[in-house]
C-alpha cells in the first residue's frame, strides 16, 4: 500500500495538468513502514525527453542526487516516482516496465485527459532482477 496525504496527492496530479500535453515526472520521498510506503514529500522533476515529451519521460539522474541527499539527511528514502500519461490510461506501459529499475518502489501514474487529471494508480516494481521484473497493483490510501 502507498499512503499519501491529500496535499501531496493533489500536487502530483496538478503537476500532470500543468505539463499537459507533456508527461510530468517526480520523486516520492518517505519511509517504508511495515510494508507500507508512506509518502512524506513529493519532489517535482523536469522531463528531459524533449524529443517526445508527450509520451516519454526521463528524470535527469543529476536531479536525483540532491533528492537522495535530502532524503538521507531527513531520515527518509526515495520510495517511488510519479509520472503522467496525457490522454492515455493510468496503466503501466511496456515502455514503463522496460525502463523501470527501482525494485520495491512505487510507480504512480496519473491519466490526464484533455488537460484534466482523471485516474491515478500505483504499481510496485516486483521481482529480484531484470529477468523477472513485473509491476504489481498497489492500493493508494489518501489521508
Amino acid at each position: 500500500m502507498l499512503k499519501i496525504s491529500q496535499p501531496d496527492y493533489a500536487a502530483l496530479r496538478k503537476h500532470g495538468e500543468e505539463t499537459y500535453p507533456h508527461e510530468c515526472c517526480g520523486v516520492l520521498l518517505g519511509k517504508m513502514d511495515d510494508g507500507v510506503r508512506v509518502v512524506k514529500e513529493t519532489v517535482r522533476c523536469g522531463n528531459t525527453r524533449s524529443d517526445s515529451p508527450e509520451n516519454r519521460y526521463n528524470i535527469d539522474p543529476q536531479e536525483l542526487i540532491p533528492a537522495q541527499r535530502k532524503a538521507r539527511e531527513q531520515g527518509m528514502d526515495i520510495i517511488g516516482f510519479y509520472h503522467s500519461h496525457p490522454d492515455h490510461p493510468a496503466r503501466w506501459s511496456n515502455t514503463d516496465l522496460q525502463e523501470a529499475h527501482w525494485f520495491a518502489c512505487s510507480y504512480v501514474i496519473t491519466s490526464v485527459e484533455m488537460g484534466i487529471a482523471s485516474r491515478t494508480h500505483s504499481f510496485v516494481l516486483a521481482g529480484v532482477g531484470e529477468e523477472d521484473k513485473r509491476f504489481e497493483d498497489e492500493n493508494i490510501e489518501v489521508a
Binding site: 508527461e23 520523486v27 525527453r49 509520451n55 519521460y57 536525483l64
Partner: peptide
C-alpha cells in the same frame, strides 16, 4: 560516489493488465 538507476518510461504502447 552515488549509484543512481535511471528513471524513465512513457505512455506509448500502453496495455491493460
Amino acid at each position: 560516489l552515488s549509484i543512481v538507476p535511471s528513471i524513465a518510461g512513457g505512455s506509448t504502447h500502453w496495455r491493460c493488465k
